[in-house]
Design a protein around this nucleic acid. Structure first.
Lengths: 157, 157
DNA sequence: CTTATTGCAAACGGTTTGCAGGATA
DNA sequence: TATCCTGCAAACCGTTTGCAATAAG
């Protein structure tokens, strides 16, 4: 979970550099966005934003999250449900996802062995690795459930 | 590249079991589909099909490829360009993809080390692995180019 | 002759855009 | 005040669906 101050600063710098303006809607979306360590879909963002910024619509959410992405503080993620989700991004950080088909929870993971093998796979074909997407889908093991379910109640987000 | 006869047989069995009918459109799409080892997008399928089945439209292509998928001979793949692509599928086979951002070629790969680590990642979170999607994006290394470009001309598909 | 299939056009769901009014610097 | 931003509604794009006409078994 990247720290709020760093993201705020990077966003401000980007806006200043591009002559963009600070608005209530942007601040509200920023707050919601960084306060949650979940992978929020556009609709979830919108619903939460409407509490503090009545009247806000999809267009603003889409435009603002695109801005966040261009500013380098948000990462767009598309899983298999046709919805675009966003997560806060600390530059340099990287991780992939493990999605539980039973409870819907999205875990993050990083594995150096897998990372290394990927570069190797690309190299043997004459390519340099640029990026990748790696989503693993699983199901809670019965009867214990996955570690997120097991910790249910402890989590707020 | 799975063999045509096996796919044809599996499709026929599926159709017989479900009381479905053989039609010109389905045969044309099947031929195009198995004749190419590329990852065809719906529009490409449609364009090629119209040569042998004038009048055929998107609806039929979508419905037919869904049928192929249900029959277990096609696999739906969604990469980052918003288009659904289909590839012929020999049951039991599995591979991931390496996409070249320079020339657009899609390589297939499989890596046992990566496969094994994935199961491990899931296990440590209390999940059993169900499936995964792993796409690597790269760029041709200059000046040689990727192995596909290097072999350009040799390939037909 | 019965049932499945086709092609068309309309509907869809998520996302993007044009525009006139409203807010920010 | 000049410019950017917002909200709305309409446009978009890939995909799905209802329907009447058509073809397969």
């Amino acid at each position: 979970m990247p720290d709020r101050a760093a993201l705020q600063q990077r966003l401000n710098a980007y806006m200043a550099a591009h002559g963009l303006k600070q608005t209530r809607q942007r601040q509200v979306l920023f707050d919601i966005f960084v306060a949650s360590d979940a992978h929020l879909a556009v609709e979830e963002l919108l619903v939460r934003a409407q509490v503090r910024a009545p009247g806000i619509g999809y267009a603003t959410v889409y435009r603002t999250l695109k801005l966040f992405t261009e500013a380098g503080i948000a990462l767009e993620r598309r899983f298999q449900d046709g919805q675009t989700r966003y997560e806060a991004w600390a530059k340099g950080e990287h991780h992939d996802h493990l999605i539980c088909r039973t409870c819907g929870h999205i875990f993050e993971f990083e594995d150096d062995v897998i990372e290394a093998r990927q570069a190797e796979v690309a190299r043997t074909r004459g390519l340099t690795l640029v990026s990748h997407r790696h989503d693993i889908y699983g199901e809670c093991m019965e009867p214990e459930g996955c570690t997120w379910r097991a910790a249910a109640g402890a989590h707020k987000d």
